[in-house]
Design a protein around this nucleic acid. Structure first.
Lengths: 226, 226
DNA sequence: GACGTGACTTTTGTATTCAATATGGGTTCA
DNA sequence: TGAACCCATATTGAATACAAAAGTCACGTC
């Protein structure tokens, strides 16, 4: 039955599986069969297989040939390490973003892609300010993600951007598994970071974002201790 | 034509595509069609698609829905950043490996998996010593990779191990694209690192491996400048 | 002559089908 | 009684067939 042609991918199976893993609807360590996932998402096994390959490369699932897949386990001790790595990655992206901003300012080449990214980042920052002011704290995690990946976009490094996206997924998984988001106090720290990037102060931007992430780590580990 | 059933995956298509990208046989930025790859590797499109999804997650190819895939580009400026990230990742793995070694020594739990990993690592170190002594420098890159992933295995963190494997792939790509390997002088630095891990000196192990990688970075950038 | 519009071709996305392998239970033999 | 072996079944791996979307090029019109 050719299935009446819904949307081309109906929001990419891999995205939905990743979400369900992060939300805990697919429990860590659980054995998952392709047929079950196909039924769950209303598709055939082929898109599910492709999604599982991608998720395996990202470390969300583990597969053995002819022996099936299971949801990966995130060991408790890894949390701190993930933040450490994220600090290094984002430090590099902030530095590169500042360097690129300096080049944008000096050279006569406008690079429209850079400007749209910069404009979107400004909108994200404003949205977050509004959300924090109005007490809509549940909107902040998504905006936080948008801010940090926006910085990576400004850096213009595909490798670092992809690496950060993976780390962000893992860290979102950590957060979802227990404590809530750090919230309002964290958001205001974004302003000086973006200011340093705009000013082209590479060293300052790197130092600021590293400190920002270090505080997130400490806050997370403190809550995690409970 | 059901194709006479060769080996189940004939060495995993994704591995072969990744190799061909690293070796430059699939040029950076080149547009690749699934049908062409399927013909090249003598399979159908389905395994190729799955491989491309995994490689996209690793950042070796870029795909847009209904618009095909292309080999990613590694921008020249990213080299330094990749080494920075690797320094952070491997610093974390060395630290965790030392902590785990200390637990192995103190607790009565032998953990056979740990011991086999440790034994293999000793063999890798000995093989590298022999290769360096006999001047077989072309054997060192692979042994170097084995040493560093062996440390990650001792750390026992699946996330960090997977992350490092990706970084190693990218860095191998860098090396293959131009300069040769650092070689003999680098290999001897592995001994004090493993010694610190064995002794359970977490801080020292981290400092040593970070310095080791920083030297690799400087050596690479120096050669790259030519 | 340039631009917009249309069909056509190429390529990707998905479903269905068949083959190969691992896993678990039952049986048999020591 | 226990352990090893074999077979049935479930599940993955791969190939083929078909549908949908995007890029391309020619044609007609302004």
């Amino acid at each position: 039955m050719p299935q009446a042609a819904e949307t081309p991918g109906e929001r990419s199976i891999s995205v939905r599986i990743r979400q369900d893993i992060i939300r805990g609807e697919l429990a860590a360590g659980a054995k998952i069969t392709e047929a079950a996932l196909a039924a769950r998402y209303g598709s055939s096994r082929v898109p599910v297989r492709e999604a599982l390959r991608a998720l395996a490369a990202e470390g969300f699932v583990e597969s053995r040939p002819y022996a099936g897949s299971r949801v990966a386990r995130l060991e408790p001790g890894e949390a701190g390490d993930l933040f450490d790595v994220r600090e290094a990655v984002e430090g590099a992206t902030a530095r590169r973003a500042a360097e690129r901003a300096a080049r944008q300012a000096s050279a006569g080449a406008p690079d429209p892609a850079w400007w749209t990214a910069r404009r979107r980042l400004g909108e994200v920052l404003a949205s977050g300010d509004a959300a924090a002011a109005e007490g809509r704290l549940d909107a902040l995690p998504e905006l936080n993600l948008a801010f940090h990946s926006g910085i990576a976009e400004l850096a213009g490094s595909a490798s670092l951007q992809a690496l950060l996206a993976q780390l962000a997924g893992k860290i979102e998984w950590l957060y979802a598994s227990d404590v809530g988001f750090r919230g309002r106090d964290s958001w205001s720290e974004h302003h000086p970071i973006l200011a340093a990037v705009d000013a082209g102060s590479a060293a300052e931007a790197e130092a600021l974002i590293r400190a920002h992430i270090r505080r997130s780590k400490q806050s997370f580990l403190r809550r995690f201790a409970d």
